[in-house]
Design a protein around this nucleic acid. Sequence first.
DNA 1: CTGTTAGCGCTTTCAT
DNA 2: ATGAAAGCGCTAACAG
Lengths: 339, 339
Amino acid sequence: MVTLKDIALKAGVSKSTVSRIFNNKGNVNPILKRKVKKVAKELGYYPNILAASLKRKRTYTIGVIISNILNPFFTSVVRGIEDIAIKNNFNIILCNADEDPKKEGIYIDVLRSKKVDGMIIATTGENKDHFSALEREGIPVVLVDRKVEGSNFDTIITNNKKGAFDAISHFIETGYRRIGFITGPLNITTSFERLEGYKLALRKYEIPFDESIVKIGEFKEDSGYKNMKELLKIKNPPNAIFAGNYLIALGVYEAIKECGLKIPEDIAVITFDDFPWFKHLSPPLTAVSQPTYKLGAYSMRRLIKLIEGKKPYSEKRKRVILKNSLIIRESCGCKGNKS
Amino acid sequence: MVTLKDIALKAGVSKSTVSRIFNNKGNVNPILKRKVKKVAKELGYYPNILAASLKRKRTYTIGVIISNILNPFFTSVVRGIEDIAIKNNFNIILCNADEDPKKEGIYIDVLRSKKVDGMIIATTGENKDHFSALEREGIPVVLVDRKVEGSNFDTIITNNKKGAFDAISHFIETGYRRIGFITGPLNITTSFERLEGYKLALRKYEIPFDESIVKIGEFKEDSGYKNMKELLKIKNPPNAIFAGNYLIALGVYEAIKECGLKIPEDIAVITFDDFPWFKHLSPPLTAVSQPTYKLGAYSMRRLIKLIEGKKPYSEKRKRVILKNSLIIRESCGCKGNKS
DNA sequence: CTGTTAGCGCTTTCAT
DNA sequence: ATGAAAGCGCTAACAG
């Protein structure tokens, strides 16, 4: 491995000079500069960031933990994070918790040991102990998409409650009154808040809340499938379904079609999450669209502030709630329905 | 920051002992062991991997560069890599080149500076210089999904030629003879090989190759859209389309529908890449399914061999070609078509 | 079984 | 403008 020392030797200067040259620090004789760069190139030198970071106590690397890398919602958030990171000369270590709190905990420890300058986390909803440790140690953290209750971290989310409220209101205003809801674990705040929005809309329109048509499962396709099947079995099944995320919606589509039922004629569907290909689904899926990229970009900007500004807790924590919007297509049955 | 030294001091032992305890190396008095661990916990100690790696000259970290994090094909590959990595105590730094060779080049340098033990790369198709440097330096690299021509790296890919050949053969055998092909840049080997498979099938069935109905663009939705529109404009447009990846297929769907044409009645479609939700598309999309997870898992296993075995170039490089399979749904028009 | 010691490759005062 | 020297936190001989 080629090191600073090798270059210094060959170029006939000291290590400090070489270091200065590569870091653009202080003034260096241009002639030396050129010579050193030439030698470095000849030798095929690549700086050892590990060593530099150890000394500097700064890695210019941030850790990002997302809960499911197979979900394009999160990868789009990552794209937002990435663009801002690159612009500011930060590197990213991306970790996938796979909706597994244990994995998440391990990754938090790994990132800490790798001495990242800060972390952005879309949590699985557990690991309170890890989070309070991070808080105690003053490690800059911003939470994205999912809150950690009781923590004091900066948090960038979208308006889940309002998103769900809008979706349910749309159902109701177009004539549906028996609306089922299938969502993920309630310890994930997005799930919980969407349920709140659901309830709020029912209350507004004076429709009684019926526990038997809300199903709490996982944010996964087969969970959506199973829960929809359950719902289809009850005496008085819903004629409209609100899916807590797009994976659940896919399971819902599967279950409904498998039973020979039609969307939206027999059962209408709206989902949280929106992707371009929803318009090519059969039928095109009505969805609550979230500003994913913005979510990521905003989080990274905030994290940089925390890192550079230091004293992350001197100013009050920041909570940002981004707007969602309902994209009406055909699955919600608002065109030519019973209303 | 709490260091080994702090613990050593407080526990009344030497740094080496503490180090031994945390690394399970050599024999240590169990009483001391317990004491040290207790102290470490009290102080909230987290090992500084940077320092350890610097000394050990080993990071137990591998770098993964994928060409598009928004494409679930690649994230699924990453899942495969990840599972094997975790099982073997490796960490991953995931980088997204975004189909941009420049970004890819920068990431290769970053990973090198971070002294990763090895890299897995799904290349954008450029950066020959970077790759030959990696080869020269003997850094363990395995290429996944996309080859680098002229390089000597281990390579894990799927059988693109055969996949395309099967798709086109299916078209032909069910009566189609004017089959268009829209794909990505030919310097990406997957694209090139799929074109070869396309040609091969035509030749087999003695259908002349017609340049005017093959379009080379990017592996992106809007590129697929534009190229399909072009194809629709020509005097003798194809009545079947083979899309080089699923993003292109989405663009193709959009373009066809926008023109008021029906799939597959007016134009049949088959794509490379397969995802579960294809069955809910309108119409369900016939696809060449690739073993994405396996692609990743295999690559990681191979990389570990290279890293542990050292002398990566003593044995011959390994090339693995995984099988694909054609998943027939409705968009290919083989049910009730003109044949 | 435990401690001492010498670095890993780099940055950063402090002199010169 | 440049160099010498100390040290970041850790590991690994080598002694004992």
